[in-house]
């Protein structure tokens, strides 16, 4: 499952384009936050884009995705429309969750995107259940669960891995190990810092991946998905990555050296892939310029969509607390 796919021009364009649109979207979100258009918590994924893009590239529409509160990249790469994603940041009625969730809680039925879950570790049992439903209903989908290495300290991580392995459920667990649970370095919270070894202890097929290399992530995910769809049971990927920005907009980053951040920025997944694709002749300079312009244009349109979107009426405050029917 380590073989790298032979990339076509179109494939390379898509990978770079997806990473760029996430990056531009989030840089704009940071600006909008300082303008107070976006409030609350805003957790940026900048630096980690190769993971979301590589993973989602390998999934099928009938698969389910459970993500964390750092979910913008996951949502956009999965195919959640950018206008509603931005309107969700604003808290507008046109948001993917009608503005009720905000940055941390993007949900999207058409792409089977089950949040945007902001209790660390809380998404793992959901993914196990979604996979159980697929298996019991004899449907072909798998459930993909993303979480950070901070979740590994939660009991729900261990319970969920055990249950998924015990029942051979079609789940792909992806730990995006960005080395810090908010301000706590992994060495300060884990007695075993090789996270994939914990999954192996539950007899999951488990491995570590370079999460700054979109092609490596996609290749690993394709291998994992093939294993799972073949009935081989759950797979665990530990993607080694790094967030370039603060944990949230309130974070003064007292817990890590600037030099460390700069060292990781040299491995920027977008620059790295772009440089490689150009040198390999897969992309031309004009492609890069066009993708960059397209990303900016899409984000501009998303901001316009969010600005124009109405607020939810106060009369709808209690709507959806209880549902009248199960949406189909």
């Amino acid at each position: 499952m380590t073989a790298k796919p032979r990339l076509t021009h179109e494939h390379a364009r898509r990978l770079l384009g997806q990473m760029m649109r996430i990056r531009v979207f989030e840089e704009r979100c940071a600006e909008l936050y300082t303008q107070q258009k976006i409030r609350g918590f805003l957790h940026l994924y900048i630096g980690e884009e190769a993971n979301a893009v590589g993973i989602m590239e390998a999934l099928a529409p009938h698969d389910s995705v459970v993500a964390t509160y750092r979910d913008h990249g996951h949502a956009l790469a999965r195919g959640v429309a950018m206008g509603p994603a931005m309107a969700e940041m604003y808290g507008k009625a046109g948001g993917s969750s009608r503005g009720r969730g905000g940055s941390m809680h993007i949900f999207d039925r058409p792409t089977r995107f089950y949040g945007g879950n902001a209790i660390v570790g809380g998404g793992l049992p959901l993914a196990v259940g979604l996979a159980l439903a697929e298996k019991m209903a004899k449907r072909p989908g798998i459930a993909v669960c993303l979480f950070g290495e901070g979740a590994v300290a939660e009991g729900e991580f261990h319970e969920s891995l055990n249950l998924a392995a015990l029942w051979k459920l079609p789940v792909l667990f992806v730990c995006e190990n960005n080395l810090y649970a908010m301000g706590s370095a992994v060495e300060r919270t884990e007695s075993e810092t090789d996270i994939h070894l914990k999954a192996a202890a539950y007899r999951l097929n488990s491995r570590r991946v370079d999460g700054m290399d979109v092609v490596a992530v996609e290749a690993a995910t394709r291998g994992a998905v093939e294993h799972i769809r073949g009935g081989g049971g759950p797979v665990f990927l530990e993607c080694m990555t790094y967030r370039f920005r603060a944990h949230s907009m309130f974070d003064a980053q007292l817990y890590r050296d600037k030099a460390e951040v700069e060292r990781w920025k040299e491995r920027d997944p977008i620059k790295r892939f772009q440089t490689w694709a150009l040198s390999a002749g897969l992309l031309r300079g004009a492609d890069v310029a066009a993708l960059s312009a397209a990303a900016v244009a899409e984000v501009d349109a998303a901001v316009a969509f969010a600005e124009a979107s109405p607020w939810e009426p106060l009369s709808d405050l209690e709507k959806y607390v209880l549902m009248d029917e199960v949406p189909v």
Partner: peptide, 9 residues
Amino acid sequence: PHMSGGQFA
């Protein structure tokens, strides 16, 4: 259900 804007029950 509420947090997803009624998309999921």
